[in-house]
Simulated scan of single mutants.
Amino acid sequence: MLSNEEYIQHSLELNLFFMRILKEHAFFLESAFGPNDQALAQQAEVLKNEFSALLAETLCLADGLLSPEVLSSGELVTRLTLDSELASTYYSGISLDNELTRQELSLGSSPYPLNPSLVDQISSLNQRAISATTILADYKSKLLQNILSCRTFTFNYPLLIDHILREARFYLKMLTTLQNSQTVDLKRDIIDQEIFWNRIMAEHAYFIRGLLDPTEEELFETAHRYGKTFDNLTKQALTMTEQTTILPKLSHKAQEATVGLRDFKVAGTEGLLQCKIKAIMVPLLGDHVVREANHYLRILNAFTSRLR
């Protein structure tokens, strides 16, 4: 069972990562609707603002309470996040709260113990995050059903809608585990995380491949190779229920592949910001998938150190 201090820190770190991710999901959804679906776009705008408000509240609680590993991971914000937001707002006309990004860039850690009296505030925050995420997941689910039945059109891939729906549900699962003080089995958690994130990384590579201009053949091939690499890693992770002895080796393979894909994503985001890559992709989507890779890398680094 987690101590109060662990509960507070784990909750803050989980929320800071996923609240920004889900806020940006709403942005990507809103920006991809045509004139006939402005009611859906407005719903996405409301959801984006809800997660912005939750993120702002979390930031007020979190400064000085985060682990150095999270602060240095690049999963909350990167050096490209602010520029990516500004460029994406310019392209889409949809506003983003850049002050939140500036605040996150200045977050610090503290050597002092966490205050256990924050438990009630954090518990309330987590419950409101569960409610907001449930609403967003329901919105994504209904949207996906309508897209697949040809009742709605969006410039987002159906797989992307399914992808971000799975991320919302994964966040809900982790929040619920925290709220219920459930004990996590280390090896089972490692396997579940690797199955989930390897699939996510594969799909990132395929999304990048599909959003590149057809003339970007070298980048297309690189993205395709990373997609196949992570498909393989996902298949291997799915066998780990019976072959856990080779888990450290698989985690190491996932680390190496994720570093390579993360660096490819960083170079791609820089290329979009500098107008050196031809694609139908806003820079914020590039930075978004960089942060998800950084998050996965921190998890893998923690796992490999605990498995030694």
Rank of each mutant, 00 (worst) to 15 (best):
M1F: 10
S3N: 01
E5T: 07
I8P: 03
Q9R: 14
Q9W: 07
N15L: 05
F17I: 08
M19H: 00
R20K: 11
L22M: 15
K23I: 02
N36D: 10
D37I: 03
D37P: 11
L40D: 12
L40E: 07
Q42D: 13
Q43C: 14
Q43K: 15
Q43I: 09
E45T: 13
K48A: 08
S52C: 13
E57V: 01
T58F: 06
A62H: 11
P68C: 06
P68H: 06
T81S: 05
D83K: 09
S84N: 02
E85T: 06
S88G: 08
G93K: 01
I94W: 06
S95H: 10
L96T: 05
D97L: 13
L100W: 10
T101N: 07
S109H: 11
P113F: 03
L118C: 00
V119W: 00
I122F: 01
Q127G: 08
S141Q: 13
Q145T: 09
N146R: 12
L148W: 12
L148P: 15
F153E: 08
H163A: 01
H163C: 04
R166V: 04
A168Q: 13
L178P: 12
N180K: 14
S181N: 08
S181H: 12
S181E: 05
T183Y: 01
L186I: 11
R188H: 12
D192H: 08
W197T: 02
I200P: 06
M201L: 14
H204V: 07
Y206F: 10
E217L: 12
T222L: 13
H224G: 03
H224W: 08
G227T: 04
K228G: 06
D231W: 02
Q236R: 13
M240D: 09
T241M: 11
E242P: 00
T245N: 07
L247W: 10
S251V: 13
S251H: 06
H252M: 06
K253I: 10
A254W: 02
V259S: 04
G260H: 10
R262Y: 06
A267P: 02
G268I: 11
E270V: 09
L273D: 05
L273V: 07
K276W: 11
K278N: 09
M281T: 12
L284P: 03
G286D: 03
V290M: 06
V290F: 00
R291P: 14
R291M: 01
E292V: 03
N294M: 06
L297P: 01
I299D: 02
I299M: 08
T304I: 15
S305P: 04
